[in-house]
Design a binder for these strands. Sequence first.
DNA 1: AACCGAATAT
DNA 2: GATATTCGGT
Length: 531
Amino acid sequence: MLEVSTLRSPNKADRAAVVGDHHHHHVVGFPAPPTTDDDDDTFIVDDCSLLDYIDFSCCDVPFFHADDGDILPDLEVDPTDELLAEFESSPGDEARTTAASTAESEPAAADCCGGAKGNMKEDGAADESSPPPQGKKDEDEVEAETTKEFKNGDDEVLSAVTTEDSTAAAGCDAKSSAPSAEGHSKRKASSPTTTTGKNSHGKRKVKVDWTPELHRRFVQAVEQLGIDKAVPSRILELMGIECLTRHNIASHLQKYRSHRKHLMAREAEAASWTQKRQMYTAAAPAPARGGPRKDAAAVAPWVVPTIGFPPPAHAAAAMPAMPAMPALPAAPPFCRPLHVWGHPTTTGGAEATPPQAPAPPPSLLPVWPRHLAPPPQLQLPLPAAWAHRHQPPVVDPAYWQQPQYYNVARKWGLQAVTPGTPCVPPQMPPPALLQRFPAPPVPGMVPHPMYIPIPPLLPPSPGNKLAALQLQLDAHPSKESIDAAIGDVLVKPWLPLPLGLKPPSLDSVMSELHKQGIPKVPPATASGGAG
DNA sequence: AACCGAATAT
DNA sequence: GATATTCGGT
């Protein structure tokens, strides 16, 4: 279900105070699940279908206050508390609020098209009397006002406040099955300064909800223009959404670029890290024996996160022989709908259903809201011993499909993680940072080191730079780095050996593995799967 | 003047 | 963290 996004206080503690009072849940835009009052598992919807649930028919663009951001991250949050806070703490605002809510609560007022095409959030009243200090800004304001649907032409700003409010809320909530929801959720008592909602010029401050669909359009435009030529004005043109302003686009574009940059930087870091890691692994001579297997795991980057977590069923099943390279992580068929920035080139359905990717067991996705759990038919059996795990084994590629790792990339355009989506090639770091080595597999290199503890490393010593490096790497391998490392390993288990270093012989590797209780892998299978 | 983008504010 | 606004540069 979707809850109306409220201009709530960021103070989660406040909201938590009333968690549990489901009576005031604001459901909008979706058919009411069987049990609307309970956050139970009955309402199952996947990423794709979630979009389908949204009725965009009356809107040019699905601007919803029931935005992604408000659903998943704040599942436990009940907007009611905000209401309570409002009534308790800001009687002044309440007058206006109640009045507005009354008007909005009328379903008749809900005309998605008529009111606002945009899911603009109005932060507060406007003070139209104060002239803008800067002429430039004045122009911008004009632009904004003219482009916004709820400008209502020559409507007075003051009236626009209520109008805007009602249109933004009721307009999009029109389809809502909770008629009175918008009234409550629309405004909440935040600090008077912020809730007054006026910017420095006393103009309306309207927030744009960048819904997945809206973002999809955005990215589509950006890709169409090219990441380099994508400027707000052009993007705005291509998007063709009146209610957006160039500033809205610019702001979003800024963040979009920022995220991309961030992701690529980490990708580069991961690649670099992987390379170093491989260098050391290859360079490390036969390790001292006797160390328990746990120790080896403690120093092996890809094993470190697995401490305490046995591999999942499907991973374990593939371990003994390790003949085939596991498929690259694919988008789970039930992608989290919120804060998942759908791929621009897909329209809400195809992106999240790669046929080759079985759904990860639900227990591997602990952060997902229960009501968004995968359908039962997609749930894989899991060993009982694993059923209780709250943290998935990192060795499982599915782990990296967790929203916090997977969806971020999806959202911000590293489309490489969304298989099957026809789109512009992902922006990759410079070749220098992402070296690909088409060299054949090195004999003796196990193609799937993820699941194999590497031999114990040399004890750190002043002269042992490799050991020092290892420690450093082990100390702070980011999950993203590990993720990328895993990806690298999966794709190309071989990496160039540093000059002057010789790879360990197959016998030595196998011998060491055997000492540590790992059954020897037949060379035929060990070298397979590289292609 | 218009626009862009980074920095900053909300 | 998301979005808006400001500000300096082009």
